[in-house]
Amino acid sequence: MESLTALLVGLLVAASVYLMLARNFLRFLFGLILLSNAANLVIFAAGRMTAGAPALVPEGASVPDGVIGNALPQALVLTAIVIGFGLLAFTLALTFEAYRRLRTLDSDEMRHAEPDEGKTEAGR
């Protein structure tokens, strides 16, 4: 499954890079979500994948029974998901405010801080 995950991660990264390079800011956000998913899968797969054996110590025993799923990447990914959500919410708020003020979602037209020197928007 690690190999298939590697291919899926490649797919997600390619899609997210393509989306993040778009001029529409919503596409950028979609790319960010996909990238966050891809990163989580990379961490998860790098810790090796074991099917059907959650990282639990069975009742009555003091150590797990046999080979179980690797707990460390799971802990890392769990917090990464929540933090990724926080980041996404913040970016979404930023996007929305930018849209409300500038009435555009095109990042090329968001030139409030760095105005184009002597160029008009007609050339694009």
Binding site: E2, L12, Y18
Partner: peptide, 14 residues
């Protein structure tokens, strides 16, 4: 660039 980024990630994980 996106395809290159995807391929590189896949290769690294493999």
């Amino acid at each position: 660039l996106a395809l290159l980024a995807g391929s590189v990630t896949t290769l690294v994980l493999l």
